[in-house]
Design a binder for these strands. Structure first.
Lengths: 263, 263
DNA sequence: TCAAGATGGATTGTCGACAATAAAGACGGC
DNA sequence: GCCGTCTTTATTGTCGACAATCCATCTTGA
């Protein structure tokens, strides 16, 4: 389920231009996965010598991978200080939803206008699989989440807009996965979400760009609201460990330091 | 007129956290400006040893700057081959407009909801300056273009959405400047654009997010259409040097090579 | 007792040299 | 004369060591 999205093109059978993977490339993929899945805990400081030794590479290659992770906003770096894994606050999480709303609504419209018939058929097949998975509730908890992302992922690709695809699939996609792992959120509205997905696909199949855009916007807004409610419950319930308010600028003398990566 | 946008925050007087600029930071800024303004021609190959010598830095620092340039899509790199400055095709240019439409429409809505009264006052003052500049036609050609970007820039910041701001101001902003320099486009609808800007600000001042969003979307679409028409004229007129069709995947044996940077 | 400054330790930024890879040109076969 | 293969050359990827910077602790004075 961890497909390499960075090298995927619209037609995956593109003769695969002998990617010539470099060490930094592989490291980037590994670290990205490790961060998204929580193997490297959120908020932890990243020690360059330690990580370099851990993965058996030079510090230079590691720094290159770190810089790419910074570019997709999975880690934050400060000069002469170091890097740490991002700690998504609830406000930042909601910010991502706003960006996705604007971008994915546009993607849905473009997909309705320009997606190939074959692509639409694949979309329908995907939804059919999701319906079946939803039948036996066991898989629902995790796979439906991945399936949700897969759906949005394909709509983005269906837009045919390279820059749109890159922003959605290379940056926001991984951030979304990260927060779902961090906050441990299991969607309580998979059934409604699936129904909304179906409506969107119908609009795309009917080549109704305006409707597809509107449906996608409403879908993401509903998802955002559900998340907002869950967040309110979480923050009110047990003391938040991974959730903190608006980012404090410079904690001059913090009494307790954030945990370092346990190497 | 080349403000450093990367370190600008909502309140520019933020005590400026002693940014501790590193060599790669400065190089990044310099190279970005050089590329955007055409000093390093579009499509030219970048030789790491040559550039490193030219700027008097190590190749390592240069590579770090290059990697950041790649992150904001100003250069393209291939492993074991090298980097070259982007060559915006007309389709890619229009793609950027679509992304901006989705993002800036959202930004306008958020700005209407959350922008401070002081910020709105500044916006109005900015428009007043633009009106005056538009009075004596001399400045129109170049400054109005910068003024246009400045307007959109401020709306984005007014959204208060950090991620939205970063995408718009750190990535798309420079790309837009780049293509305006590359294609040598002077807007022939500055007067209409200014009027549209005024309407948007009115909507924001009235806290009408829905209207602001709708106006911004229409504004960007109109700008896109004007660009589309200009592109059609250009491609039909003289032989296009900076404009090429859909990107060719692998020019196996190109008879003529793109120009290298003249060092 | 608290605050401010100096000091030590560790981490990051920077650099030059070596190895691996791909592009360009020479050579030979068809 | 043209195509495929091999060699050469230049460029990029990778590495380890040194220098600059920051953080934490300790010291000193009021």
């Amino acid at each position: 389920m961890t497909v390499d999205t960075s090298t995927m093109t619209l037609a995956a059978l593109d003769l695969e231009d002998a990617p010539s993977l470099t060490i930094a490339d592989r490291l980037f993929d590994q670290l990205r996965q490790a961060i998204v899945e929580g193997e490297i805990p959120a908020g932890s400081k990243i020690s360059e010598p330690a990580l370099a030794a851990r993965y058996g590479v030079s510090r230079g290659s590691l720094r290159e991978a770190l810089q790419r992770l910074e570019a997709i906003k999975l880690i934050e770096r400060r000069a002469n200080v170091g890097a740490r894994v991002v700690q998504l606050s609830s406000t930042e999480l909601l910010e991502i939803y706003s960006v996705r709303e604007g971008l994915e609504a546009m993607a849905a419209r473009l997909a309705a206008e320009r997606m190939s018939d074959a692509g639409i058929a694949e979309l329908k097949a995907l939804l059919e699989r999701h319906r079946q998975e939803l039948a036996h509730e066991d898989w629902q908890r995790y796979f439906q989440q991945e399936g949700d992302l897969d759906f949005h992922f394909r709509i983005a690709r269906g837009s045919g807009n390279r820059r749109l695809i890159e922003i959605l699939c290379n940056d926001l996609y991984h951030l979304t996965r990260l927060y779902r792992c961090q906050f441990g959120m299991k969607s309580h509205r998979t059934r409604e979400a699936l129904r909304e997905h179906e409506l969107i696909v119908e609009a795309i199949a009917a080549r109704d760009g305006e409707l597809a855009e509107w449906l996608m916007r409403r879908h993401i807004r509903a998802s955002r609201q559900a998340t907002e409610q869950q967040l309110a419950l979480i923050t009110a319930g047990h003391p938040p460990s991974a959730i903190n308010g608006p980012r404090v600028r410079r904690p001059r003398r913090p009494t307790t330091r954030p945990p370092a990566t346990p190497n």
